[in-house]
Design a protein around this nucleic acid. Structure first.
Lengths: 412, 412
DNA sequence: GTACTTTGTTCGCATATTGGACAAAGTACG
DNA sequence: CGTACTTTGTCCAATATGCGAACAAAGTAC
């Protein structure tokens, strides 16, 4: 009774089985973009008659449309059906520790509108919720007719999400948010279902659909920004662990003799590559690099990244060390989980190959098992918008798996 | 054309979807052991008429039987149906680096017959295959009528298994076995389907069905014996990674300044807790412990375990150090994967709490994230037979998910 | 122009499952 | 006891889903 009607849990595991085959037609057409009924029949294994019937139903929803004839394959020319990417829009919210971003996307992950604001999210649930609502509304207002076509909102949060209680944000990471129900607030305001998940998980989801993880059902996404976190795709689905805290790579022990960490341990990855640590390291080295681009400036993670991109020797050195430590942790991920790829995201991935190459080298130094060492290690293809995009994709993902989530599609 | 008809791949991912609901009746009755048709209808959500029809079919296969009336729930007394655990038998083969064990089980994981033989498996595919065949035959001969009721053979191998080519054993770990097709040989000899998987994976499966992992859909099993390996249950299924080598925990770096490992790296877990390392450590300490139980004996992993169980100070010290290093690696597993439990198996788990308690302490020292540190860490409940049992369970697992594998059940 | 191919629809059929009716067998209680 | 209600298991008609065959429309190949 207390949960809002429109707020959805993250992963309805119970419905994994017994999904009607007919649902896969829509998903397939989404993937193919365009196809004839006959082609859909061939690829789904359904009969042409069955596909015809399903297509008739989908045409009524306006999610697909007939768009003329295709080329003949030696007989009558097929009627092409096309998935209508603009039939609906989705809002994706990236709530960071100190910023909020909102993306309005179509059903192909195209960003139609983008809003970003710096805000101290951690301490201010009410203000943040109001800000998110405003940014969402701005996006909807900017795109003509978007309000009426909105099908859902996805939210990425910078803390673990327990799949069993997706509405409650972790009191450990965000104590001020205890008892505050962001999804319900958004669901009430915009009257659409709201889905929520951890930011690294949604980065992985975005890469799986649109980026370097396309075609891979098992890979890891490592987000290196203010903090470090990992998200996993396992068998094509986000993996959250038993209690939703899988991917806490930031507190892996890299060096038992390292510096103490806020978590109470020593030598955690976060103590080497967290933004605070990188800024400190940079400041300490400034004396011996008086001609660095960073000399005399207010050093921040972003300014270090920029300097490294500009080939500043000091910043490059800091990044190389960070890459080395990242490599140690990633070697552990490879040994334990054997992902098909490791995709590096977050602010540091702006460095591209400048980051990836030394990480690869560090991994090689730590894993000589040939099969493991062959794993792909790559930078994100999606850039800073990947988290908000992933949040929107969460909604799309659920809807294509369960078409009754689309407005206008009758529930099975 | 080249694959044997009866050799099955490990995990037919493709058939995950569209499984007929009727199949779940058998699985449910297996879980419940006894239930009436009405009870099955309530729990599956199917109508009583449907369940009745399905039950009629299953009765004909002798997999289930009517076993009298149950207590009334306020009306007519229900006819109890019982799963017939002895309707079929399964052979589980544990092929280690230097031993072979075979278990004959019923459909409830009960070991009906057990055979064990030491053998240098690594270099001798032909001899090992013959030995396995003989041990299997002995088990079948010992149990009356077992030969006719055999439904399948599961095989655990001490190397990674690529799900896409389950028949080919890793040339890296077992070079002499390259091109040798063990499953095909067994399938031809016994004329039943043969399933194969890695030993740690099957240890995890056994714990999931019969041991400390019951009721947990996400946990890790760590096998500490001659080598160290991990098997994962993820969402109730074995997880093998992108290329089947997930769980290579033995080559995780514990200490970057540690001793060199055969893998070319330094400070791997295997260099601390592998049998060779433990034997070496023990020998080195023998001088300073002249009154140890191990003094003057041929030290082996097994004798160290025995001595530790007998509270020998030297052996205890070696085990404590091993537990400490194991804890480091397990802390990494907890941080990365957030399993619901970590179950310790293999020879060292004979120590029980003597091993588990120091491992827990070491983990606590390395993971202070409250949610992670709360993870259960336990010793295997199944003992040395767990791997062979898991191999047999692999067959049972597949058959309950796909009843047409049971002899006598018509294919859908 | 003729023979073959491909597409999409229509229609009858097979299969799985449901829901209602019903008889058998029980309980609850005056 | 007898009556009213419950539960169980079966039978049967109704329904939904998907398939295959047949067919007309539209195209290609030569």
């Amino acid at each position: 009774m207390s949960t809002a009607t429109n707020t959805r849990t993250v992963d309805p595991l119970s419905e994994a089985r017994g999904r009607p085959l007919s649902d896969s037609v829509l998903e397939l057409l989404w993937r193919l973009r365009q196809a004839s009924r006959a082609e859909l029949a061939r690829q789904t294994g359904l009969s042409r008659s069955t596909v015809s019937e399903i297509v008739t139903g989908l045409l009524a929803t306006k999610l697909i449309a007939e768009v003329g004839d295709g080329p003949s394959r030696g007989g009558r020319r097929p009627v092409l059906l096309a998935f209508q990417d603009d039939a609906n829009v989705i809002l994706g919210v990236d709530m960071g520790a100190s910023h909020v971003s909102v993306a309005l996307t179509d059903l192909r992950g195209q960003v139609l509108c983008w809003r970003h604001a710096d805000h101290q999210v951690r301490m201010d649930p009410e203000g943040t919720t109001a800000l998110i609502s405003d940014l969402c509304q701005e996006c909807l207002d900017e795109a003509p007719g978007a309000g009426a076509r909105l099908m859902g909102i996805g939210v990425a949060v910078p803390c673990p999400v327990n799949p069993r209680f997706p509405d409650r944000l972790s009191e450990v990471v965000l104590p001020a948010w205890a008892g505050f129900n962001l999804p319900e607030a958004l669901s009430h305001r915009f009257e659409v279902p709201v889905f929520i998940d951890n930011d690294a998980n949604l980065g992985a989801l975005a890469e799986h659909w649109w980026g370097a993880g396309r075609g891979l059902d098992d890979f890891a996404y490592v987000k290196v920004a203010t903090g470090v976190g990992a998200g996993y795709m396992i068998r094509g689905q986000i993996y959250r662990g038993a209690t939703g805290v899988a991917g806490e790579i930031g507190h892996m022990t890299i060096d038992p003799a390292g510096a103490p960490c806020v978590c109470g341990n020593r030598g955690c990855l976060a103590t080497f590559v967290g933004s605070e640590s990188l800024v400190d390291q940079t400041r300490a080295l400034l004396d011996s690099h008086p001609d660095s681009l960073l000399a005399g400036t207010e050093v921040s993670l972003r300014s270090i990244e920029d300097a490294a991109i500009a080939d500043d020797p000091l910043a490059t050195q800091v990044m190389l060390e960070a890459a080395n430590h990242l490599g140690s942790a990633i070697a552990g991920v490879l040994n334990l989980m054997n992902p098909g790829a490791v995709i590096l995201g977050g602010g540091l991935s702006r460095l591209g190959e400048q980051l990836v190459v030394p990480v690869r080298e560090a991994v090689m130094r730590r894993t000589l098992l040939s099969s493991v060492a062959a794993s792909r290690i790559e930078a994100s293809e999606l850039g800073p918008r990947s988290i908000a995009l992933g949040a929107a994709t969460l909604v799309l993902d659920r809807a294509l798996a369960t078409p009754s989530l689309f407005p206008g599609v009758a529930a099975a």
